[in-house]
């Protein structure tokens, strides 16, 4: 059974900061726009102490939430996958 496509993420490296990750995962974008996007996808890293600093175990999303397809439902209702 192949794995369905889910939101892509990376784990930080010990010397990472926001700028190094922007450079690594969004190299073709305007750095300022890319930085803003990256932060908007990772607000969870600001909603805890220390805000905005990486911890080794963090999940860092490198894309926004996914739009669209339907997930299986066992409540008998259709649900949207974000």
């Amino acid at each position: 059974m192949p794995l369905s496509k889910q939101r892509e993420f990376i784990s930080p490296r010990p010397d990472d900061d926001w700028a190094t990750i922007v450079k690594r995962v969004l190299p073709d974008q305007d750095p300022e726009t890319a930085m803003s996007q990256l932060k908007s996808w990772n607000l969870h890293l600001f909603a805890r102490q220390p805000p905005g600093e990486f911890l080794g175990s963090d999940v860092i999303f490198i894309e926004g939430p996914r739009d669209g397809k339907e997930a299986p439902s066992f409540f008998g209702i259709e649900v949207e996958v974000s």
Partner: peptide, 22 residues
């Protein structure tokens, strides 16, 4: 291990500082 717990200073517990290699 934990990815959410905090200590009395509300700082992450030690396990959260571990990188995947560890």
């Amino acid at each position: 291990t934990s990815f959410v717990d905090v200590d009395h200073n509300l700082l992450p517990v030690p396990s959260r500082f571990a990188y995947l290699e560890e």
